[in-house]
Design a protein around this nucleic acid. Structure first.
Lengths: 149, 149
DNA sequence: ATATAATATATGTATATACATTAAATGTTT
DNA sequence: AAACATTTAATGTATATACATATATTATAT
């Protein structure tokens, strides 16, 4: 559905202004869908992001600031997100011996198992790949990168 | 900067997965920039969205649910956002006489003046139009609409 | 060696968000 | 008209977020 109809606004100041609004709206659409998929698993999209970062490093541990660098939302409160995941036993947290300021974080077996289950559900959300060709997806990716400069 | 470098992830499962992450990241980038511009004016991006919707209807008033339909983020707590704006005297709120469940909301002179000042600052944020041609912006708009189905 | 700066993480706080529930007014059915 | 359903808005509540500040540790400068 056209963004014009989604937010009942039929004129935009420019194609650029429309693009800004379209990105905000599309993000909302995507986040709502993801949140719904994750809800039965008891984790938020941001916690999911952290788990996937940790899976990428597994079986190694990485520091909290290292996680932050890799997060989609840089402004997140990574310490508290990590603590939430620890309470659910999805990750482990140990003070680094070499630099005692750092905290080494590692995904647990339980965390990896949860990600596997989530993956099945995520694969069911095929709207994007149903509606776009791979070439079109690539075009958007290149233009978004160009846009941010 | 390429999304790969922004989040230090050099391989993606597919162009589609990369696109989902790119949209989330670009949204974050855009929201951070907008929040910074709005901060000196004491309003959040969501409050700004409501003000612009009301400006679009001005000098007429519209109901809270009507505002919600036009908002980028449909899940927002429009009642509370409206109340915040009323406290700042940027909008007025009157119970509708014809249907006493409804509340008619209208932007004030002060609200319109604030939007004018914000506009000047927003115009200074030219990153998008500097980095993309109008045709490229249009391409993304069309593809995002297509993507959501 | 001591003072100062820089770094890593955690905490405090106000606001925002998601979602469920409530309350009031209006519509619909019988 | 009475009972029930729907709509509109507000409120309650738990969690998340943004941003400032604090604390501990390590690095650097004097």
């Amino acid at each position: 559905m056209r963004i014009e109809d989604e937010i009942k606004q039929n004129k935009f100041h420019s194609e650029y202004q429309k693009l800004a609004i379209n990105i905000l709206f599309t993000n909302q659409w995507l986040t709502t869908n993801t949140t719904k998929i994750l809800k039965p698993f008891g984790i938020s999209p941001q916690q999911y992001n952290v788990l996937r970062i940790l899976k990428g490093q597994s079986p190694n541990a990485i520091s909290v600031s290292n996680i932050m660098d890799r997060m989609i939302d840089k402004m997140s409160n990574t310490s508290r997100l990590v603590e939430k995941l620890r309470q659910k036993e999805l990750i482990e947290r140990v003070t680094c011996e070499k630099d005692r300021r750092q905290v080494d974080v590692k995904i647990t077996k339980k965390g990896l198992e949860l990600l596997e289950k989530v993956k099945t559900e995520m694969n069911a959300f095929k709207t994007i790949s149903n509606n776009l060709t791979e070439k079109e997806a690539k075009t958007i990716n290149e233009l978004l990168d160009k846009m941010r400069g």
